[in-house]
C-alpha cells in the first residue's frame, strides 16, 4: 500500500469525526437559532410599521452586505477590545446564526407573500386573529415553499462553518489542516477534506428530498 493511500485512510476517520463533532453541531445549532431570527426579521419586514420594517431592512442589508469572515472576526477578535470576550464556539454560533437570520428572513418573507391573500381572509372569516391565521394557515403553506431555498442556505452554512477554523474551533477543516501541517501532504489532505464535505452535503441533500416529499402530500401535481 502506498504511503499516500495509508495517510488518506488513517486521517479519514479523524476528519469525519471533526465533522460530526464540530461542523454538524455548529451548523445545526446556528441554523436552528438563525431560523428563529429569520422568522422574526421576516415578520418585522412585513409589518405595517415603518420603523419596525426599517430596522429589519437595515439588518438584512448589513448581514448580506458584509463578508461572513469579517462578521466572525468582529465578534471573536474585535469585541475583546471592548472588553467583551466570547469563546470560539459561542462566537461562531452567534456569527453564523445572525448570518442565517439575514438570508433566511428574505426567503421566509417571500414564502409568506406567496400564499394567496384568500388564505388570510379564510382565516379571518372563521374568526381567527392575525397571529393565529399566520401560525395555523399561512406558515404551514409558506414552509412548503421555503424548504428548497432554506435547504440551500443550510448546505451553504455547512460549508461556511469551515471559516470557524480561523477562530480556533475544532471542526472538519481544522482537523484536516492540523494533519496536513504535520504530514506536509497538503494536496492530499485538502482534497480529502473536500471529499468529506461533499459526502456530508450529499446526505443532507437527500434529507431535503425527504422533507419535500412529506410536505408535498397535500399539493396537487
Amino acid at each position: 500500500m502506498s504511503e499516500g493511500w495509508q495517510l488518506f485512510l488513517e486521517s479519514f476517520w479523524p476528519i469525519v469525526l471533526g465533522g460530526l463533532t464540530g461542523t454538524i453541531p455548529l451548523a445545526l445549532a446556528s441554523f436552528a437559532i438563525g431560523l428563529v431570527i429569520a422568522l422574526g426579521i421576516a415578520l418585522m419586514r412585513l409589518s405595517g410599521n415603518r420603523v419596525v420594517s426599517g430596522i429589519a431592512r437595515f439588518y438584512v442589508s448589513v448581514i448580506r452586505g458584509t463578508p461572513l469572515l469579517v462578521q466572525l472576526f468582529v465578534i471573536f477578535y474585535g469585541l475583546p477590545s471592548l472588553g467583551l470576550v466570547i469563546d470560539p464556539w459561542p462566537s461562531a454560533i452567534i456569527a453564523f446564526s445572525l448570518n442565517v437570520g439575514g438570508y433566511g428572513a428574505e426567503i421566509i418573507r417571500a414564502a409568506i407573500l406567496s400564499v394567496p391573500k384568500g388564505q388570510w381572509e379564510a382565516g379571518y372569516t372563521i374568526g381567527m386573529s392575525r397571529g393565529t391565521t399566520l401560525r395555523r394557515v399561512i406558515l404551514p403553506q409558506a414552509a412548503r415553499v421555503s424548504v428548497p431555498p432554506l435547504s440551500n442556505t443550510f448546505i451553504s452554512l455547512v460549508k461556511d462553518t469551515s471559516l470557524a477554523s480561523l477562530i480556533l474551533v475544532t471542526e472538519l477543516f481544522r482537523v484536516a489542516q492540523q494533519i496536513a501541517a504535520f504530514s506536509q501532504e497538503f494536496m492530499l489532505l485538502y482534497l480529502e477534506a473536500a471529499l468529506i464535505y461533499w459526502l456530508f452535503c450529499l446526505v443532507l441533500s437527500s434529507g431535503q428530498g425527504m422533507i419535500e416529499k412529506r410536505l408535498d402530500r397535500y399539493v396537487a401535481h
Binding site: 394567496p116 384568500g118 388564505q119 381572509e121 379564510a122 394557515v137 404551514p140 397535500y218 399539493v219
Partner: peptide, 10 residues
Amino acid sequence: FQQHNLFPHR
C-alpha cells in the same frame, strides 16, 4: 368565497 379558499394543507 368564490375561490372556496379551503386550507390546502388540511
